[in-house]
């Protein structure tokens, strides 16, 4: 019964909730800057308006440029079906789904970069090269964390690892978890192109990554990209929140509300980080990502020692 209700809620959640996170982040940043800022629901307006707009295509581009956003959004949505949300099992869960999850995001990245290179602009080539490079450094950190989670939960699926994450684990393996949470937060910021890795606001600077890759996309394609980016934030946020807020009330409605609240809180924290930090020099980005790898690798070593 509960399962039957949870699937529609899960689907609704991935369909409707993600742009709100962007709104909350922007609102927080406006607050720190002493501005009123755009309404919290502005990203929804943006997406709807872009969806209705016309498109501009460069004659340099080919079918890849049009296929890019389509494949990207499909891959991210497929990945979203495997990530448990709100302390409930994901609609699709099986042994090894965390690998498929990571690789679906890889597929999305592949086609985002390919579409960027299709424009023939050096600017977008730059963004693509950076995205590809930083992904190489982020991927091992994610997998070290997955190894830690697999060891702790003795399960090899995302639902098994994250759902019912018992709070008591924090007493047993607190040190390891703390290191891993640090790594995951760095990953969350890097994968979603937030400060200190990337600045989602100023896409006209030579140091940008994600924004510059999608510079030539317009209209409905841009709407899809914007929504896809916010959905990815939700997915990484869910991974983070299930570990840091491992409480479960028993009532499924309360759990969903708690999850939503925690996600909004996370968005506020991201907003605070963005407001109080400067973006890193580009040459420092790899160092921070390697630090995330090392943190999660240490977490893995600690967990290994403990249980064997």
């Amino acid at each position: 019964m509960e399962y039957m209700v949870n699937i529609p809620i899960h689907l609704l959640m991935i369909a409707i909730f993600p742009p709100l996170l962007l709104g909350v982040i922007n609102r927080t940043k406006a607050f720190f800057a002493g501005r009123n800022g755009a309404p919290t629901l502005q990203p929804y307006h943006d997406i709807i308006r872009l969806w209705q707009k016309g498109s501009v295509f460069s004659p340099t581009t080919s079918v890849i440029f049009r296929a890019g956003p389509v494949l990207t959004i499909a891959a991210i949505v497929a990945a979203a079906l495997m990530m448990p949300l709100g302390n409930h099992p994901a609609p699709i869960s099986f042994n090894g789904d965390m690998i498929l999850f990571a690789y679906l995001l890889g597929l999305a990245r592949f086609f985002t970069i390919a579409a960027a290179l299709d424009t023939g602009s050096s600017f977008e080539g730059m963004g693509g090269a950076r995205e590809a490079t930083f992904a190489c450094l982020a991927e091992p950190a994610l997998f070290f964390s997955l190894v830690v989670l697999a060891r702790i939960s003795r399960s090899i699926s995302l639902t098994g690892m994250l759902n019912d994450f018992p709070p008591t684990i924090w007493f047993g393996s607190g040190a390891a978890l703390l290191l891993m949470v640090g790594a995951l937060f760095i990953l969350l910021l890097a994968e979603n192109c937030r400060i200190p890795f990337d600045d989602p606001n100023t896409h006209l600077e030579l140091t940008m990554i994600h924004e510059v890759m999608v510079l030539d996309h317009s209209g409905p394609a841009l709407a899809a990209i914007l929504y896809g980016a916010s959905l990815k934030l939700l997915l990484f946020g869910a991974l983070f929140i299930h570990i840091t807020v491992p409480f479960r009330s028993g009532s499924f409605l309360l759990d969903w509300c708690a999850f939503t609240g925690a996600m909004i809180l996370l968005a506020i924290i991201v907003g605070v980080v963005e407001s109080t930090m400067a973006r890193l020099k580009l040459t420092r980005v790899p160092q921070l990502l390697i630090a995330a790898c090392i943190l999660s690798a240490f977490a893995m070593l600690l967990v290994m020692r403990q249980t064997s």
């Binding site: 707009k53 016309g54 498109s55 501009v56 295509f57 340099t60 600017f123 409905p220």
Partner: peptide, 15 residues
């Protein structure tokens, strides 16, 4: 969506 909205061709943005 593309068939229902105007589609224009223009050079890649060259900064």
């Amino acid at each position: 969506r593309l068939s229902k909205s105007p589609v224009k061709a223009s050079e890649t943005w060259g900064c």
